[in-house]
Design a protein around this nucleic acid. Structure first.
Lengths: 331, 331
DNA sequence: CACGGCTATCTAATCGATTAGATGGCAGAA
DNA sequence: TTCTGCCATCTAATCGATTAGATAGCCGTG
């Protein structure tokens, strides 16, 4: 006796079973736009339960023009910073009973646009864009299609759509202040290959904070552990490694730590380090990183509130300084 | 002159513009079940292009009972191992022109079931389940609804659904062999809190490989850097830290590294370490980890092939040994 | 008793794409 | 010339839920 995949139960089945019309069943299911007599409501509920009725969200979406699905255009899920952000965004959406469609855009504006088109075709109710830097003005496209969109972490400069980001300037000022209190006079900064996005903001804040210093060095490399690792080895070999460094991202900091270890440079004794992301990773490096911690969860929640119009403006959340070992503070 | 969100173009609009019926337009768009005269096809294509027609996937889904969407039930996107796996799965699906719906189940079987229900209600065409360990027999539920499902990394023991995983036994044997060649006689193993899932397989393979050894120590802690860090400090304080250790996951290994650094225990000099995940992370720890590298991409692709019935059986892929510094090999 | 005003329900149009069945026109065969 | 057959195309039903408009039953009032 093979139990075959029984064909799904429809509204009409429930209506028949309860001895009413589909309209009434719909009103009951949705606490519909019209009231239903208590007795009838009971019958319908009972019938639905007995038949294990599950509304077909596709049909509902077609008719009501809202899918309950939000698209998330993500730079790269395997980068822990973005991965964590993605998780918080998904959870904030889940709380609002929304489903999350994800796509990894890598670091390409083209793929970002491509994913946006696909999500729009899927009739998403909204779009959340988490890009590293650069990227097209995807929110403009979404809004043209009547779909709300928000950027998290990094927005399109001068484009449409609101941007949710932490207060990077304040964070950098705190980091600089802390290293100064450790007695460091010249503070280097490791930035990304360009000055786009939040990293640019951080770099500028650093430049402003150290503008008096004679020998503040600006370093640059790709956003990868490998690149930072290689750069560090190179600088150590040249004897040009700074004594105090602020890295724009945790990826950078982890790469620096790795390169320093490989070349026998002790952190924090001969290199004081503060990183500006503060992902969970940073708590368990060797040594543990002192960081300014991006409030990822708060950012995710704010983005979703913005998307649904619960708030009308993003306000930059504070990224607190979390003191650990890499800056030179004791255990 | 405000440009309002123009109402979307439908098949009927295109048909009118091309001077044909909706049926013909549909046949053209899908290389439909019936042929269309070349001239007409051109007219339709031109009309569709001019109007920038985008098929409404919701309507299509309602009628054809296939959504082009696959659900991904993920343990935790902020864990880099799962994050990387998620990215590869999304990309494999994208290649097949499918969209990915994600949900983070945390490490709870209940949330796993909950997500599965939501995805099924959304009429997904298939389900990919990436769980840490434990978990309900979600594939059985999916199959009852007529939706194919595959497990990646970890399956439900004795349950439905195929499981895609690497050859963990061979990996452990390689790791053990390598540490032996370094001259270590007693090899400890750091496992998770229970013996479920792939970690259990790894633990058993280790037990089998060291069954002759008098003092092979089995350690256990949660799957988190923090737990492994704390355990390591504790063992060092007690003077009970092993000289050679295989960790079940990279999270464990990174925590051990962190704890060892904090207590001044040199790796690899006083502790030789090999980890069994081999995420990208492992290349840039201090010191860099020697690992057996799980073929995440191959696993993701195999899972998708399985899901679409391109292959009928999963075969365990090889997880090669990647030699770096933590085992004691020179740079 | 008749009628207005409610309330509880029912009927049926609608969302947009798919596709089976009906139709029309033209070419080749008888 | 007429009939058959095939090809290209059109008409309309369908997927399942939503909801405006129509309808029926009931109560209270004049």
């Amino acid at each position: 006796m093979t139990k075959r995949a029984d064909k799904p139960i429809t509204l009409a089945d429930v209506a028949r079973r309860a001895g009413t019309s589909t309209a009434v069943v719909s009103y009951v299911i949705n606490n519909g736009p019209r009231p239903v007599a208590a007795a009838t409501r009971e019958r319908v509920l009972a019938a639905a339960a007995e038949l294990r009725y599950r509304p077909n969200r596709i049909a509902r979406a077609l008719r009501s023009r809202t899918t309950g699905v939000v698209g998330l255009v993500l730079a790269d899920a395997s980068n822990p910073y973005f991965g964590a952000l993605a998780r918080h965004i998904e959870q904030a959406l889940e709380k609002r009973d929304r489903l999350t469609l994800v796509g990894n855009a890598g670091y390409s504006a083209d793929r970002q646009r491509h994913l946006t088109e696909r999500f729009l075709a899927a009739q998403v109710d909204g779009l959340v864009i988490v890009a590293a830097d650069g990227g097209g003005d995807v929110a403009a496209r979404a809004e043209a299609a009547g779909v709300p969109a928000v950027y998290v972490h990094h927005g399109h400069p001068g484009g449409h759509g609101q941007v949710v980001a932490a207060d990077n300037q304040a964070a950098v000022r705190e980091a600089v202040g802390h290293l100064r209190r450790h007695g460091h006079r010249s503070l280097a900064f490791l930035s990304g290959p360009t000055d786009e996005g939040p990293v640019g903001v951080r770099r500028e804040a650093w430049a402003a904070a150290v503008s008096g210093d004679p020998d503040a060095v600006l370093l640059r490399c790709d956003y990868s552990r490998g690149a930072a690792d290689a750069l560090t080895r190179h600088l150590i070999a040249k004897g040009a490694m700074p004594r105090a460094l602020i890295t724009a991202t945790d990826e950078h900091a982890i790469g620096v730590l790795s390169g320093a270890w490989a070349r026998g440079l002790a952190v924090p004794d001969r290199l004081a380090l503060i990183s500006l992301d503060g992902t969970p990773e940073s708590a368990h490096t060797a040594p543990a990183l002192t960081v300014t911690q991006q409030p990822l969860r708060a950012m995710a929640e704010q983005a979703i509130e913005l998307l649904f119009g619960d708030i009308s403006e993003a306000l930059a959340a504070h990224a607190p300084l979390v003191v650990r070992r890499s800056c030179g503070c004791a255990a």
